[in-house]
Write a protein that binds this DNA or RNA. Sequence first.
DNA 1: AGAGATATTATAAAGTCGTATAATATCTCT
DNA 2: AGAGATATTATACGACTTTATAATATCTCT
Lengths: 213, 213
Amino acid sequence: MTAARTKPKPRARFRREAPEDRRRQLGEAALRCIVKHGNAGVSVRQIAAEAGVTQGLITHHFGEINELVAYAFDIMSDGLMESIMKAVHDAPPTPQARLDAFIDASFSPLLFDRDVLGVWVVFWGLILHSPRMSASQQREYSTYVVTVESLISSLAEAENFKVGDIRLTAMAFTALMDGLWLAWCLNPSAFRPEDGVQLCRNWIEGLRRGAYA
Amino acid sequence: MTAARTKPKPRARFRREAPEDRRRQLGEAALRCIVKHGNAGVSVRQIAAEAGVTQGLITHHFGEINELVAYAFDIMSDGLMESIMKAVHDAPPTPQARLDAFIDASFSPLLFDRDVLGVWVVFWGLILHSPRMSASQQREYSTYVVTVESLISSLAEAENFKVGDIRLTAMAFTALMDGLWLAWCLNPSAFRPEDGVQLCRNWIEGLRRGAYA
DNA sequence: AGAGATATTATAAAGTCGTATAATATCTCT
DNA sequence: AGAGATATTATACGACTTTATAATATCTCT
């Protein structure tokens, strides 16, 4: 035999990175894959390719792929929450201005985005079938609602109107915003983001007029 | 050769059915698979097994699997819409009673159901990536909003209050209900269905008080 | 500079996926 | 009752999936 029958493929060069860095890279690659292909993007091979590494690395860092996806969810929800909170923080310190900033940020192109919903829809699907994902979602939802509660009750105090059950009311407002987000992303020609902002303001106006007392 | 090397498997007996019947059977089998396994349930083999037929039948009746899924979406949305409209139709013919019936039906166990949301989440994921699915969704959403518009404007007329943009307002109410549905299904301990009904009534109360004029 | 730790690659195994093909059983119609 | 139409089965193929394994390159530390 003149030529080697087995050609030992030359091993690719690679950088060795800290586990936490690599985990984050993989998580972000996962998000990009989900944006591009939806549920079909949740695949060890695709994510590894997107991150520019081999598949074994995912097994090594996360064990099973579900763990990676749950981690990606945490990255994503932390990021969104952070950008909203930044907007609130940067607003003038009046209850009205802070609530407006919250609404505006929610309907800004950063959040009010088909790609973002695409990722969330995939997560919702997993949450319904995985306790691990469900736990992450409950944490996320809870902190979100608490924030809304606080914004609303500050406004109520400042303007001296009554709200019956603050927690339920905050969940209603959250639901309204999520519902508008969903409807617009599924069908962007239905209304404009500004219309969504206005509808939220109308809801607040109902609150002022005592509809939730 | 004494024994036959190839054992020709005896062909299974089967009933030959009208195409429209078979299509519906396959569509309903698809829905059951999606309920059971979420996105993972969308599979030619699984659906065929669920329907008790072989895979080729799906190709034969639908060409590609996406077509079957779109058909399943139509079955499902028609069914839900029909059950809501029945409730409205059975209510006393006053605007208030009809709107209440609409709300109550939306929060009844038939609709306010994790399994139902599970199916919709899968559909949403497909809608975002498939023009075919998107077309079906737009039809569905449009008829839904028109219904809400009609219920709201009847009430406004009867009680003599003003609504600025009926269409946008109807979309807000739709969004609120969808958002509550989503939140509750993802986390059923967050609130009770009755709370959801109350929050919708509060929204209507805001409408009455002119918050959307 | 050399050794130990481990992050990373390469590769294989077993299974599922969607679609295409040809054979055939079932039904309808005359 | 027999023939034609077609709904249905069985099977094959190639691409993709997840997970497991052993070999190895890279880095850190002394």
